[in-house]
Measured scan of single mutants.
Amino acid sequence: MQNSHSGVNQLGGVFVNGRPLPDSTRQKIVELAHSGARPCDISRILQVSNGCVSKILGRYYETGSIRPRAIGGSKPRVATPEVVSKIAQYKRECPSIFAWEIRDRLLSEGVCTNDNIPSVSSINRVLRNLASEKQQMGADGMYDKLRMLNGQTGSWGTRPGWYPGTSVPGQPTQDGCQQQEGGGENTNSISSNGEDSDEAQMRLQLKRKLQRNRTSFTQEQIEALEKEFERTHYPDVFARERLAAKIDLPEARIQVWFSNRRAKWRREEKLRNQRRQASNTPSHIPISSSFSTSVYQPIPQPTTPVSSFTSGSMLGRTDTALTNTYSALPPMPSFTMANNLPMQPPVPSQTSSYSCMLPTSPSVNGRSYDTYTPPHMQTHMNSQPMGTSGTTSTGLISPGVSVPVQVPGSEPDMSQYWPRLQ
């Protein structure tokens, strides 16, 4: 039975679970980093996980050691009161100082060594604690504590007292930064006198190289990059290397530039699409467009005044059976039934097929058609009795279509119309 579990990581490298990497692998990681390889490249070359490479390099940059820390136990506290007071002093002298600059000053002034120097995250935590204590304490208590930490007896009751030896409130920041720059020169002199001055200088240079600022491109470089971006948004590694040799930039910087440029292009394309949609959409909808001609068919113009009344309900007709019959029939052209047409008796099958359309009241044959006459024609229609054979009435077949029909004066039988409509 094995005491430890061995495995293979996602890159194909072998590791022992819970145990640190061998010293030979750690040394190779540092050597590759000094030669300029990126952590992701080191991870692929040595088949070590990216997190492990970053952790080893980060500890090497901070402490200069590649040895693993002790497994188990607690780390001794490195942010001692003396170190905290120095950090507060540096922050007062130059409020814009960075944590890694404070760390360098602690090393250069001999406050800490490589073994007990606090990390950048520890210094940031100390600065946050100082800021929170400043908010919790009152103004007087804060000034007393700062005077105690600074070891001075001057008056701290006013704002300019934060910067000793100065009279203009805006000047101390520059003086403090100048003092810090002077301390940086002392850093070089002190570290050069040490035993491991060369190694420390190499480590600091490598650290500065990794902690780079934003790349500033010249106009020629920007023009070359934009020209390549117009050709393709995704250049391959050969195109990037050719462009890197042409404009004297690292291939990694060119790759990052193209990634950022593609993101910018997507944002601009989104804005262009929004403007295009806004320009195509009308600002207001016309009133006429809300009524579609496919839904509402136009009603033909009436030929006679009587045809303006298109349904039985508008003429005072309360018989719903006839109203439904007229509205359900398709529109037909106007025609006239003459008196000489043969009077065919209704076929029983045809009569039964339209039995649902006729009223059940037996008085329908005896009703006159003056009910369908509009009010303004009552006088004219009353002067001509319906009993004469020459009287013409208008029957409504569908809305908007008038059918003048000659009705025999002897017997106005409704059943004569249905064979004609089939």
Score class of each variant (00 low, 15 high):
S35L: 15
S6M: 15
D41E: 13
E82S: 10
E133T: 10
C94I: 07
I102T: 03
V53I: 09
T80G: 05
S4M: 12
M148Y: 14
Q10H: 07
S119A: 04
H5F: 08
D104A: 12
T63A: 03
G51E: 05
Q2E: 11
L106Y: 02
M148D: 14
G141E: 11
I42V: 07
L32E: 03
I29S: 01
A131N: 10
I97C: 15
S49T: 15
L32V: 01
D115A: 15
I117R: 15
P68Q: 03
V53A: 04
P76L: 05
K86R: 14
N129I: 09
G73L: 02
E93F: 07
R103E: 03
S132D: 08
C52Q: 01
S49N: 01
E101C: 09
N9K: 02
G36F: 04
T113G: 12
N50M: 10
T113L: 12
C52H: 00
G141Q: 13
N50W: 00
G18E: 03
S6I: 15
I66L: 08
E133S: 12
K28V: 06
G13W: 03
G13K: 05
V8H: 06
V83L: 03
Q47R: 15
S54L: 03
K86P: 03
E109K: 12
P68Y: 03
K91Y: 03
N9F: 00
C40T: 09
V30K: 07
S6C: 14
V126I: 14
G51S: 15
H34D: 07
A131D: 07
N129L: 09
K86C: 14
L32C: 06
E109S: 11
R92W: 10
N150Q: 10
P118F: 03
A37T: 11
T63K: 04
V84H: 04
R59C: 01
G141D: 15
V53T: 03
G73P: 01
R38Y: 03
K145E: 12
S85V: 08
T80H: 06
A131M: 10
S96D: 14
R105M: 12
G7H: 15
A70T: 10
I97N: 13
C94F: 10
G138A: 12
V84L: 05
V53M: 00
S74M: 02
I71L: 06
S108D: 14
F15Y: 14
H34E: 14
T25D: 05
K28P: 02
V111H: 13
L46R: 02
S49P: 06
V53S: 02
V53H: 02
P20C: 02
V120P: 15
R128Q: 00
G51N: 01
P118W: 00
H5C: 13
D140G: 10
S4I: 10
S96N: 12
M137T: 11
R38P: 05
V126T: 09
S122P: 00
G18Y: 00
A131G: 08
N114C: 13
Q27E: 10
I45H: 14
R147P: 15
P76S: 04
Y90C: 12
V30E: 01
Q47C: 15
K91W: 02
R38Q: 04
P118Y: 03
K91H: 01
E109H: 10
S43F: 00
E62S: 14
Y90N: 05
I117F: 11
S119G: 03
R38E: 03
L127C: 11
N116A: 11
R19K: 12
N150G: 10
G7T: 12
R105C: 12
E82G: 08
I123Y: 02
D41W: 05
V84R: 10
R26P: 01
R92C: 15
K86S: 09
D140F: 11
S24E: 10
V83R: 04
F15E: 03
N116S: 08
S43G: 06
P68W: 00
G64L: 05
A139C: 12
R44D: 04
E109F: 13
Q10G: 06
S121C: 00
R44L: 04
K55S: 02
I102A: 04
N17M: 15
I102K: 00
S122M: 00
V14P: 08
D41Q: 13
S74L: 01
I97Q: 15
L149W: 05
V16Q: 15
E82I: 14
I71F: 07
E133L: 10
S65P: 02
I29E: 03
A79V: 07
L46C: 07
V84A: 05
F98K: 10
N3D: 09
N3H: 12
C112A: 06
D115C: 09
G72E: 03
G138E: 11
I123V: 15
I42G: 01
R103T: 05
P76G: 01
E109L: 10
Y143E: 14
K134M: 12
S122L: 04
M142V: 11
Q2L: 12
D23K: 05
V14M: 10
I45Q: 14
N124L: 06
T80K: 07
I56L: 08
I66S: 06
D104G: 10
H5W: 08
A131H: 09
Q27W: 11
Q10C: 07
G64I: 01
G12F: 04
A33G: 04
M142I: 11
R26N: 02
V48D: 01
T80P: 05
L127T: 07
R92G: 11
C40F: 02
L46T: 11
R77F: 02
G36D: 07
S74I: 01
V78T: 00
H34C: 11
Q47F: 06
A99D: 02
E31C: 05
G13D: 01
Q2H: 12
Q135K: 13
G138C: 13
G51A: 13
V126H: 04
R92I: 09
N150M: 07
C52D: 02
M137R: 14
M137G: 10
V111T: 09
Y61L: 07
H5E: 08
L127W: 15
G7A: 12
Q135D: 08
F15V: 03
D144H: 11
V78D: 00
K55M: 01
A37K: 15
M142E: 13
G64M: 03
V84T: 08
M142C: 12
F98W: 08
